[in-house]
Design a binder for these strands. Structure first.
Length: 208
DNA sequence: CGTTGGATTGGCT
DNA sequence: GCCAATCCAACGC
């Protein structure tokens, strides 16, 4: 398994090409204090220009700014009042696109992940986009981080998985753009998230 | 300026 | 399976 970093050219392509090729790669994080935490990517989703489900579909704002920036950087955003999400920016600057990291298989720093997640089972540490951010301590401070040259978070080449074991389907939790089968995962991998593909279940709108 | 709902999670019925 | 938590971007007026 290679610990060399993925080059900028890897990311400077459409997200739908990058997403399946990110499977088997390793997301690495150096926490304050120096502890290294690493996990193998087992599930990812692509968000492309002109994609109504993408944050980059509308104009550039403070929130989605990283999506419009150079490839190989991190786009981090906050949602549902609780959770951070980590994306890898793809395509050249000016073309908003990114790959949402949805699940990792923990490799290193598992004790630290358990402490942050307050969960013991290894299968529950990084199986979900909000969970993996919590496990790796990724929040807004990591937005715009350079995965190619940065020291706080980066991507190692790891072992690309053969296309024969890559499964694809519609994305999780999106109400529009469900015609696009842009979610990719490693078939039968126990660390893939349990999120249901398709639109989120309607919540009650009742108020106190 | 008020309302809506989200690239989710975890706890409870 | 259902739904509250909890915040803020986007959008309507």
């Amino acid at each position: 398994m290679s610990s060399r970093r993925l080059p900028r050219s890897f990311f400077s392509r459409p997200a739908v090409e990058v997403a399946p090729e990110l499977l088997g790669r390793v997301l690495a994080r150096r926490l304050n204090g120096g502890t290294i935490v690493r996990g193998r990517i087992v599930e990812a989703e692509a968000y492309e220009p002109g994609d109504p489900a993408s944050h980059g579909f509308r104009r550039r704002t403070r929130r989605n700014d990283a999506m419009f920036g150079p490839p190989g950087h991190l786009y981090v955003y906050f949602t549902y009042g609780n959770h951070w999400m980590a994306n890898v920016v793809t395509r050249p600057s000016g073309e908003p696109s990114a790959v949402l990291l949805r699940a990792l298989r923990p490799l290193e720093g598992i004790h630290e992940m358990r402490r942050r997640r307050r969960r013991q089972r290894v299968e529950e540490l990084c199986a979900g986009p909000g969970r993996l951010c919590q496990a790796l301590g990724i929040d807004l401070a990591a937005n715009h981080e350079d995965l190619v040259r940065g020291r706080a978070v980066w991507l190692e080449a790891g072992d690309a998985v053969p296309a024969s074991v890559v499964e694809r389907g519609i994305r999780v939790g999106v109400s529009v753009g469900a015609d696009r089968a842009w979610r990719f995962w490693i078939r039968d991998d126990p660390y893939v998230s349990k999120g249901r593909p398709g639109p989120p279940t309607r919540r009650s709108r009742s108020r106190p």
